[in-house]
Amino acid sequence: MNASGGRRATGGGSAPPAPPAPPAPAALAAKVRTLGPSMTRSMQRVAEAVAGDPAGCAALTVTGLAELTGTSEATVVRTARLLGYPGYRDLRLALAGLAAQQQSGRAPAITTDIAVDDPIADVVAKLAYDEQQTLADTAAGLDTVQLGAAVAALTAARRTDVYGIGASNLVAQDLTQKMLRIGLIAHAPGDPHLAVTNAVQLRAGDVALAITHSGSTGDVIEPLRVAFERGATTIAITGRPDSPVTQYADHVLTTSTARESELRPAAMSSRTSQLLVVDCLFVGVAQRTYESAAPALAASYEALAHRHGALRGVAGDRRA
């Protein structure tokens, strides 16, 4: 399974899906950050070179870039394809576009890591910049075709299970709470055993959604695999589009991550981009179910307001 969606071919004469469009120039740096950790060292050298000096690399032939990075022409072409470009020529065009954006000031520079002795004001500024860049990178790299397909599946689902462990479970809980407030059935089991036993009950017409930045969390992959085999529509939100979890995903939504540092590992910084994707999914579902979603949201607001008013009244009586 891959980011183009759809289950593995099981025969028949249906035409293969059209290949996804190459990433826009603004998304190139985000792709390098997202895919870099999963590349071979030689491919990382190519990726780091093009991200660090897009103008200089745009002027090089495939042979020139291979010589600059101490790799081979085949490695350069493989890196271009992994980044989402059909070939090196397409990557050069994107590099030229990125260089033009940087020269005009529209493309931000790379921030520095947070140091142990940074003043708190610098910590705030660096974190705010990283959060903004993470959101921008995720938005630039998000496949809206896959997003639309995922929204359609969630909208039509009889029931949705969302799997996540640790920080990703917080994101899973966020999505299910939103869906419950518009009258949809959704669960986010935090226990891995419960997740698998829930997945066994899924069938065609249900949705299972896995959230894992690394894409290799076994406790998330296993229930998604079970749901996939039971015929449910499966979705993966991950920072690694070539990771094991995508084998069992009909639709893959890729996230970006702020620069990892000693004080802020990827598992923590990934939550920002995951929440953006979750919000996109929820708003898309709410749009499609507006006639029922709007009254459900109003009813939940009214119920909460009534509860808060009752609690204030009890507190007032106690003070009296």
Rank of each mutant, 00 (worst) to 15 (best):
R240A: 11
P86Y: 08
P37W: 01
R45P: 00
P37T: 06
P25F: 09
Y248S: 14
L142I: 07
A305H: 15
P54A: 12
G284V: 06
A100P: 01
A320Q: 14
A107I: 06
M43G: 12
P16A: 14
A47S: 08
T40I: 05
A21S: 15
D113F: 00
N2Y: 01
Q102E: 11
D113L: 08
L91G: 09
I165P: 01
L28D: 10
S292Q: 14
V145H: 13
A139W: 00
A51N: 02
L35Y: 09
D113S: 10
S4W: 14
A51T: 05
Y301I: 09
E131C: 11
A27C: 13
Q173G: 14
D279H: 14
A188T: 13
I110D: 11
R288H: 05
P265I: 05
A47H: 04
M179N: 08
P37D: 08
K178C: 06
T254W: 07
A167V: 01
P241V: 14
L275E: 01
T79D: 05
Q177G: 13
F228I: 06
A167S: 11
L83R: 02
Y88N: 12
T217N: 13
T233R: 10
R230S: 10
E131F: 11
A29Q: 07
I211W: 12
T246G: 10
A320I: 03
D279A: 15
Q287H: 12
Y85I: 15
G13Y: 00
D90C: 09
H306C: 14
A208T: 08
R240L: 12
M43I: 00
T111C: 05
D122I: 00
E222W: 06
P295N: 09
A188I: 03
A47L: 03
Y163C: 03
A150W: 00
Y163V: 06
V245N: 15
T75N: 07
A94V: 00
N169E: 14
G70A: 07
T61R: 05
R159N: 04
V314T: 15
E131G: 01
E48I: 03
V200A: 11
D137G: 10
V50Q: 06
A30V: 09
Q177S: 10
S42K: 05
V76E: 11
A267P: 10
L184D: 07
A58L: 01
L95E: 13
S214V: 02
Y129I: 05
D191R: 01
A266M: 06
